[in-house]
């Protein structure tokens, strides 16, 4: 089929490309842009290894066509770190041993980032519900919950410091 032109901002950088309409967003990220931090773990929109933020919302990039995000903004795991500073969620996953094989981790972190943007102080139950579209086979989730709680604390502290004008 005729390739279609798209323009997408990924991690703050704008890319123009011509893509087949059927090209999945995850393949666009991994194979066209070489952003291989976003992974593929299933065919049925079940595992969430491919989770990215599309205009701020976490979505499974294996179930979005690249043409759909034309004009939109995508954030992937590669865009989390800002100027050499780990995102609190990245830091939390490291501190609290929230990952083992690392394969689900980028998707899991993207979901966590979106959760904390919306709900800065989630309960354990809210965290577990929020990440229930992301499968992890290694950790048993306990430390992922702790990692997100760590990040939540860290982000709240950051905000209060900021609000206090320090």
């Amino acid at each position: 089929m005729e390739p279609l032109p798209i323009q997408v901002t990924v991690n703050g950088r704008t890319y123009s490309a011509e893509v087949e309409p059927r090209l999945l967003l995850v393949h666009f990220l991994r194979e066209v842009l070489n952003l291989t931090g976003t992974h593929i773990g299933c065919d049925t929109t079940s595992c969430g290894a491919c989770t990215v933020l599309w205009n701020g919302r976490p979505v499974k990039s294996c179930t979005v066509l690249a043409v759909q995000v034309d004009g939109g903004e995508i954030l992937t795991v590669e865009g989390l770190e800002g100027e050499g500073q780990l995102h609190p969620v990245q830091e939390g996953f490291w501190e609290e041993h929230g990952l083992q094989c690392g394969f689900c981790t980028p998707g899991m972190m993207m979901t966590a980032v979106a959760l904390l943007n919306e709900n800065p102080d989630p309960t354990e139950e809210e965290i577990r519900k929020a990440i229930s579209g992301n499968l992890c086979r290694c950790t048993g989730y306990v430390n992922i919950v702790k990692a997100i709680q760590y990040a939540a604390r860290k982000m709240r502290e950051g905000m209060s410091v900021h609000a206090g004008g320090v």
Partner: peptide, 9 residues
């Protein structure tokens, strides 16, 4: 319905 990520779309 499905899971939270699916529900976003």
């Amino acid at each position: 319905i499905a899971d939270p990520l699916v529900r976003n779309l």
